[in-house]
Design a protein around this nucleic acid. Structure first.
Length: 295
DNA sequence: TTGCAGGGGTCAA
DNA sequence: TTGACCCCTGCA
């Protein structure tokens, strides 16, 4: 059948999607936006998302999603993989900038995943002052402790915990997943969301600035984490999270000196405007893979 | 083996 | 604007 321009078919609990442009699993899953996709020996990726576990692999211009139905694809994975967006058009616009063109040629198959907002909030609170291997470890531990068990190909996986599961958790119990001083942020944030004091669903109806201001009220959420939450949940695309990698790439490639956040934001708004979030992903991937800044 | 610096920030003073 | 913060890794 054809669904929104893609030819899809289901076979043996796998969904085949033909003619997918701008989709490289390595660029997508290793660009710092997600923490629960793991590369397998054969180059495919197995991930836990939206209360499911699936395996994704690319075969020529097709993508194959294992452990999924056509119904799942239409309800979940089409949006999750942002397949309704024409990345070629975005790349063409951004490529007017010479530096961006280089970054894009390096990470040409990047896509912004539309991840579950609640999961992204907690994941990026954990990400603060932390590195990816440890963030991954903490999220896996918290899921094993408070999530639901799933089995896939003889292995055990756990869904990301429900809001109430973390809201009702003892800080001491969460501390067992080694999140350190972030544990109290996790519980407090889960509480605020669980008891309705903070309404996650409202964010998408606000302007980007107001949505960010709201998120900053959550304990453990500062400017960088707020930007990440908005971008990686597919809520806002004109944000530009500045972490040390992006700061380095801006210094090395654009300014030649340490610009400071205000200067970066000013330039980014002028150069990339509503596409700032996409630009950030290409630059981040480029910086980290090429170790720009000498780290 | 032990010790220390530094990480994909946030908070409080 | 600055230091403390929890844990982990890499490296003397």
């Amino acid at each position: 059948m054809i669904y929104r321009g893609y030819e899809i078919r289901e076979e043996n609990n796998k969904v085949y999607v033909d003619n997918v442009k701008d989709f490289d699993p390595v660029h997508i899953f290793e660009s710092g936006q997600c923490f629960r996709w793991k590369k397998e020996q054969d180059g495919s990726f197995t991930g836990i998302a939206m209360d499911r576990v699936v395996n994704v692999r690319k075969d020529g211009n097709a993508i194959i999603i294992d452990n999924a139905t056509v119904d799942d694809f239409i309800r979940i994975w089409f949006d999750y993989f942002d397949l309704g967006i024409d990345y070629s058009a975005i790349k063409e616009i951004l490529s007017k900038d010479d530096i961006m063109r280089r970054a894009i040629s390096f990470g040409e198959g990047i896509r912004l995943l539309k991840q579950d907002l609640w999961e992204v909030v907690i994941s990026f609170i954990i990400s603060a002052n932390n590195n990816i291997p440890r963030i991954t470890k903490i999220i896996n531990a918290i899921s094993a402790m408070f999530g639901k068990q799933m089995n896939y190909k003889g292995k055990v996986y756990y869904t990301f915990p429900e809001i109430d599961a973390l809201a009702n958790a003892e800080v001491d119990k969460i501390a067992e997943c080694r999140a350190g001083y972030r544990c109290s942020y996790i519980v407090k944030t889960a509480h605020a969301i669980s008891n309705g004091e903070f309404d996650l669903t409202r964010l998408k109806n606000l302007g980007t600035g107001d949505a960010k201001k709201e998120l900053l009220k959550l304990p453990g959420v500062g400017p960088k984490v707020a930007d990440c939450i908005l971008l990686f949940s597919g809520t806002k695309f004109d944000v530009f999270p500045v972490d040390v990698w992006v700061a380095r790439v801006m210094k090395e490639l654009y300014f030649g000196y340490e610009p400071g956040k205000a200067k970066i934001m000013d330039m980014v708004q002028k150069k990339f405007g509503s596409l700032a979030g996409y630009a950030q992903q290409y630059l981040f991937y480029y910086a980290r893979e090429n170790k720009i800044g000498g780290m």
